[in-house]
Design a protein around this nucleic acid. Sequence first.
RNA 1: GAGCCGCUAGCUCAGCUGGUAGAGCAUCGCCCUUUUAAGGCGGGUGUCCUGGGUUCGACCCCCAGGCGGCUCACCA
Length: 492
Amino acid sequence: MDEYSEIVKERIKTIQEIRELGCEPYSSEPFEVSHTAGPVVDEWKEASEEALQATAREYRLAGRIVGLRNFGKAAFAHLQDSTGKIQIFFQKDQLGEGFKLVKKLNVGDIIGIRGTLFRTKTNELTVSVASFRLLTKSIRPLPEKWHGLSDIETRYRQRYVDLIVNPGVRETFKLRTQIVRSIRHFLDSKGFIEVETPMMQSVPGGATAKPFKTHHNALGIDLFLRIAPELYLKRLLVGGFERVYEINRNFRNEGISTRHNPEFTMVEFYMAYADYRVMMDFIQNLLVTVVTENTGSLQVNLGDGKIDFTPPWPRLRMMDALREEGIPEDALGGLEAAKAWGTAKGMDMSNVHSLGKALDEIFSEIIEPRLVQPTFVIDHPVELSPLAKRKRDEPHLVERFELFIDGREIANAFSELNDPFDQKARFESQLRDREQGDEEAHLMDEDFLRALEYGMPPAAGAGIGVDRLVMLLTASPSIRDVILFPQLKPEA
RNA sequence: GAGCCGCUAGCUCAGCUGGUAGAGCAUCGCCCUUUUAAGGCGGGUGUCCUGGGUUCGACCCCCAGGCGGCUCACCA
């Protein structure tokens, strides 16, 4: 702990004084709560003083003092619990000896009260406290009531304080939970079962990304935090789970930004006997449901603009989009021409070794940022998608789509490659990329191939970035605003 | 990883051309039984992010470093 400030030293003195009054500042006695602030305020906000007196019901509430106005022989405070806040009123006449403890209270303390409702002269619904107990003394001062806590670093490092004083933050995280619940409910209702697959993998696969490495002492082996659950979920398709999903963390050892946290949440789901076209309809359906349930509308406000989720969403073939951009045919069909075109447009193509990568580079640079309204980009080059099934009539492309909203990829899906021979060839091709210095190329996963050899039903699979979806629906500019404890460097 | 910006009391912030640090809230004392940014009177706040340097003198100028934000790069 850091050096105590004068204020904290004062509060520590107060703790002693509280004990001298015979009260325990860190109570272990249970406090039985009968009501919570939000519902009480909602129920009685219209009621007259007479109506309140007529009920004479007793309320037992607990929460944190977030405002305190002390008079000589009376005091007003606001009590905040997880549902909202309500004003409470202490009077010496009512509390007698107990009023001495009121003098020892500070903003930040957690108390439990018992009392009845009334209306003040200014007509605010208030609990007149008949008795109360200090449940937890707070010795650190909360941020100032006017400006609150705005220092971004402190908000992330001490999220507990952020949550106490910034109601919008609480709302964002409650909404995040509801969004996840909506997704889960939707999938459950369509016959999917939720599973948990390994977070620690000896062959990290299912995505192109750099993994975190760790070590298991007893086994004496290195393990990797998973970059995706994909290869395990597909093993479950082989095992006969025809509709499976997992909502959980992935870990990628890459840069941190307003759109990237080293651990992030994905929902991945797999549907046997479907293909990517079926999946496009399915995802559109899922998101329309989730958006409606959580925002009450299909129009979502987003800082400067608006996202309209009204289906159907346009489907844009990646190659057509590039062609419309005026990219010449030779660049669409040849690595060198594509690189030259990109370089001429000011892009860094030095790390690009395949035509697919080159086209992807051009696409993300000039087309993605314009895809503000929900748009499916479909039919990607095969080199970009080593786990996706080839298009029947265009084998250099795969049956894949990405959903873009607000210029960002929200979902990625494809018809799953279930041909073990092609899968093996794709892994081998990835290994060659790796030898050429592509650290993110896939590794060979022999057991996955063995599973495919037993036979995986044709299926479509999809992944949706939950954090980014929540950003969208809460109009949060940074991923750190939708992750309770975002990764930061340790404090100095 | 690069560029730009920020870091001063618990919080939010001011601090001139370099002369040794302030306000509001919070806190402490006194007064106050319907306030809600309660009010009145009075008091104490500090590693000015850290370490060097320049200077008679550094919150301020220079150098190095730390942490954070944004943008870019990598990526989802």
